[in-house]
Write a protein that binds this DNA or RNA. Structure first.
Length: 174
DNA sequence: CCGCTAACGTAATCATACC
DNA sequence: GGTATGATTACGTTAGCGG
């Protein structure tokens, strides 16, 4: 399976992840309380909770993602990727949030507003991507400094970039 | 050493900016 | 309308903290 130049992961030591969050008891209670009300948080609600707890909102998002996982830990369930369930979940979120809204049609705070990455910022990220498509926390922080973008946005940018430009890249005439 | 779970990854999808 | 791409989801894996 290996022929030396594998773009692979085995020999490429992964950079250090972010330091693992350790919740205070009162923070965990706040999270549990919010989760019991709804398994999903709008962007506004997530920001609000993060502000109250004094933690980055990305940590709240990850906590909810992990918490939503069946048994909260994963490990089995050979369930195939059912596109239907994703759509359903999205629908449920929309419905929950939508039911509170009425006639307004203000989808603004459901999702984080789209960040508009400028060309100079793109150049910095692209250059970093060529050096290492999976930067660790320290590198992402450095890029955040250099670009002025949030670290979380940079993390997402790399995920999207890997998904769409790494392997079977199809620039489609560009 | 080991269990729990934050952090992280991929793939698909939703949503929006831009033409 | 179609394309590009940022943000969110489900689901699975990796790895750090603390017992």
């Amino acid at each position: 399976m290996e022929a030396g130049s594998n773009m692979g992961v085995s020999s490429l030591a992964r950079e250090s992840p972010r330091r693992k969050m350790v919740w205070q008891a009162w923070q965990e209670q706040a999270l549990l309380s919010a989760f019991s009300k709804s398994k999903y948080l709008s962007f506004a609600a997530r920001q609000d909770l993060a502000g109250q707890m004094g933690v980055p909102d990305s940590r709240i998002r990850v906590w909810f993602q992990n918490r939503r996982s069946p048994t909260g830990a994963v490990g089995h369930a050979p369930n195939r990727s059912t596109a239907g369930s994703r759509q359903l979940a999205s629908r449920q979120l929309q419905k929950e949030l939508g039911s509170r809204e009425q006639g307004g049609g203000m989808p603004s705070d459901h999702r984080q507003p789209r960040t508009r990455i400028t060309l100079p910022q793109s150049r910095i990220l692209l250059e970093a991507f060529e050096r290492n498509p999976r930067p660790g926390f320290a590198t992402r922080e450095e890029l955040a400094q250099r670009t002025g973008l949030p670290e979380d946005t940079i993390h997402i940018w790399f995920q999207n970039r890997r998904a769409r430009h790494t392997r079977r890249g199809r620039p489609t005439a560009q």
